[in-house]
Design a binder for these strands. Structure first.
Length: 598
RNA sequence: GGUUUGGUAGCUCAACUGGAUAGAGCAACGCCCUUCUAAGGCGUAGGUUCUGGGUUCGAAUCCCAGCCGAAUCACCA
């Protein structure tokens, strides 16, 4: 199936050659969807051709229009407004498009073959010292969704996670637990492990601050106090012991991390995200260290007097970057180098995508350069899928001020609101308690996921915890609701034994609303492709919303089951069923489930 | 301060990457359920697209200058 736009662009090229002996490339022809208020389906912008025609815009458009109408079967008629040539496409074309989409239930998706490129998508990448929050939710949803979108555009995808399971921050919660934990476990305290550990991380920070304040009160300078804080020194000592694989520290580390993982697993499962391969920083940081030392030997990096290792990136227009601390321990960058090496050893990756917040743009710029320097030819091609922060109305979320929106809490809240809304409306009669709960979960999660994913990933976004996320308007549940209404109609049609998925009858007269809907359905493929090239699930979210709005108007204005004209009724059922399918598959790319009733 | 990035209705977001009269939702105010799910539909009101220049048939979009915000430039991850 060749794209309609391409066909028209080529036709315009021919028209220009025939009319004005002009040679233009297919790409330079602008064809766009006609504005809704104006008659027509596709519009050619003729301004760029005036230099060939040497005539006014109207006349040029008329001439090209006449040529196209004459030479392209699909074109029924045309009209000219200013420099815009609006082309009207034959209704039969739209009918056959609907038939085509019905017969190809995978319409829009490109299938994966053995030659398809292998893309690895890294996302989530949590620290094991605190539970996941709203920022992580955005990361996880974007990562999972972009992986699905890449699959849908014909890539093999491996979803991966790098768990930051070691480092001073982990030691802080371990130390706090040792000191003040009194042997508490997730079981004994009836808490998710990640929340339990998070509390001790906060506890450490509190005690540390207290210590500093006391030292400063005794007359010590703040910086000196931070350096000499006994707590911090203990934490550092613990990190050294950990690196030396001290038995007790290691055992404690393993125990506490396993608590956190149990907690994360629950959160991931509720979010509906998963991974094909998980890497742990504790396994990769030494590999990175090795590569850095190798680079040092080859003279790519240099050592300072205190023993720390640095890369000088002045030639690339950047600063100097530390790669190993003076005590020989590794930093963030070191482990990313190691992880990259392990991954490319494990898989024959064609493209590596990192889903990481835009606060780390600099980090990935540097990583790309360093990997290239170290001889990884794919270094320069790595893709940093950089997304914006989630902010509160008053600014950044701050864990210290307790303004962090916890992922588990937020999901609970969304599902609670979905439950009470649904119970009020009382539309789930006949459903068992489990079935109903499942719908509440689907609706609550849909509103949350859609709220996050409908926003352009590049942009920062605002979340106001005081106003709960909407269930009306441009929301996930609105889209689900439309889907449920279609399902209800289809259910009834099937109960009556109506066979609607037959070829559209030639006698059926399409209304402009119906043509709009079919047009929207045909755009699905190019929408997915655009979402993939721009790394933007938001494009799919906004497309689905537009489709739903159009459908609701149609649903309101037109009879479907009660339509008396049989072939028109069949057509409308078929159209509705296709809209539902595209909705379901589009939302599927966003990880949003679609209930048949709600 | 350097670099990167953003500024669109009261609020949250769109705008097919330079196209026609800048669109949705929320909030406000009117309508529409004895018709297929009203978590819906229709309407009213709301805009100097931060400001000022420039580029051209045409600018929210590109360029320059300024104002405001964010991120980053760490022996934190």
């Amino acid at each position: 199936m060749q794209e309609l736009e391409t066909i028209f662009k080529e036709a315009v090229v021919k028209a220009l050659a025939a009319l004005y002996e002009a040679e233009v490339s297919v790409e330079s022809v602008q064809v766009q969807g006609t504005r809704k208020e104006i008659a027509g389906d596709l519009t050619v912008v003729v301004f760029p051709f005036l230099r060939f025609s040497r005539k006014g815009p109207e006349q040029t458009a008329e001439e090209i229009g006449a040529y196209l109408k004459e030479n392209v079967d699909l074109i029924e008629d045309f009209s000219v407004i200013k420099g815009f040539l609006n082309l009207e496409i034959a209704a039969s074309h739209w009918k056959s498009m609907l038939d085509y989409i019905t017969e190809n239930p995978n319409y829009g998706f490109t299938s994966v073959t053995s030659d398809s490129p292998l893309v690895m998508v890294e996302y989530s990448s949590p620290n094991t010292n605190k539970p996941l929050h709203l920022g992580h939710i955005r990361n996880n949803l974007l990562g999972w969704s972009i992986a699905e979108i890449l699959k849908a555009t014909g890539n093999k995808v491996i979803k991966t996670n790098i768990v930051n399971d070691r480092g001073i921050h982990i030691c802080k919660s371990m130390l706090a637990w040792q000191k003040w934990g009194e042997g508490r476990t997730p079981q004994s305290s009836k808490m998710k492990g990640d929340h339990l550990i998070g509390d001790f991380y906060v506890k450490f920070d509190k005690e540390y601050k207290k210590e500093i304040a006391e030292l400063v009160a005794k007359g010590m300078a703040k910086e000196e106090a931070e350096e000499n804080s006994p707590l911090m020194q203990e934490a550092r000592e613990m990190l050294r012991k950990w690196e030396a694989k001290d038995e007790d520290v290691y055992a404690l580390w393993q125990k506490m991390n396993s608590w956190v993982y149990d907690g994360f697993d629950i959160t991931y499962k509720r979010l509906g995200v998963d991974f094909d391969k998980i890497y742990y920083e504790s396994d990769t940081y030494l590999v990175g260290k090795e590569k850095v030392l190798e680079g040092l030997e080859k003279g790519m990096f240099y050592k300072r007097e205190d023993g720390s290792v640095w890369a000088n990136l002045n030639a690339e227009g950047l600063d100097e970057k530390i790669l190993l601390r003076s005590d020989g321990t590794s930093v963030y960058m070191t482990q990313d180098i190691g992880t990259a090496k392990l991954r490319f050893d494990d898989f024959s990756i064609d493209k590596m995508v990192y889903v990481v917040g835009n606060e780390q743009n600099y980090h990935f710029q540097v990583l790309s350069i360093l990997l290239t320097k170290l001889g990884f030819e794919w270094g320069k091609d790595l893709k940093h899928f950089s997304y914006g922060m989630v902010e509160l109305p008053e600014g950044k979320m701050k864990s210290r001020e307790g303004t962090v929106v916890d992922a588990d809490d937020l999901m609970d809240e969304m599902i609670d609101v979905a439950r009470s809304t649904s119970e009020e409306l009382g539309k789930l009669e006949g459903y068992s308690k489990e079935e109903a709960e499942n719908v509440y979960r689907q609706v609550g999660m849909a509103s949350l996921k859609y709220f996050i994913l409908k926003v352009d990933p590049k942009k920062n976004m605002v979340f106001n915890p005081k106003e709960s996320i909407d269930f009306n308007g441009n929301t996930g549940s609105f889209i689900q609701y439309t889907f449920a209404r279609i399902c209800s109609i289809i259910r009834k049609a099937e109960e009556d034994g109506v066979m609607y998925n037959t070829t559209v009858d030639a006698d059926v007269q399409l209304s402009s609303q119906e043509v709009e809907l079919i047009k929207s359905l045909t755009r699905f493929k190019s929408i997915i492709e655009e979402a993939a090239t721009l790394y933007s699930p938001a494009i799919i979210a906004n497309y689905v919303y537009d489709l739903v709005k159009d459908y609701n108007r149609f649903y309101h204005d037109c009879l479907i089951l009660k339509e008396e004209n049989e072939s028109l009724k069949m057509f409308r059922l078929k159209l509705s069923s296709n809209v539902a399918q595209i909705l379901k598959r589009g939302m599927g790319l966003l990880g949003i489930e679609m209930p048949k009733r709600m």
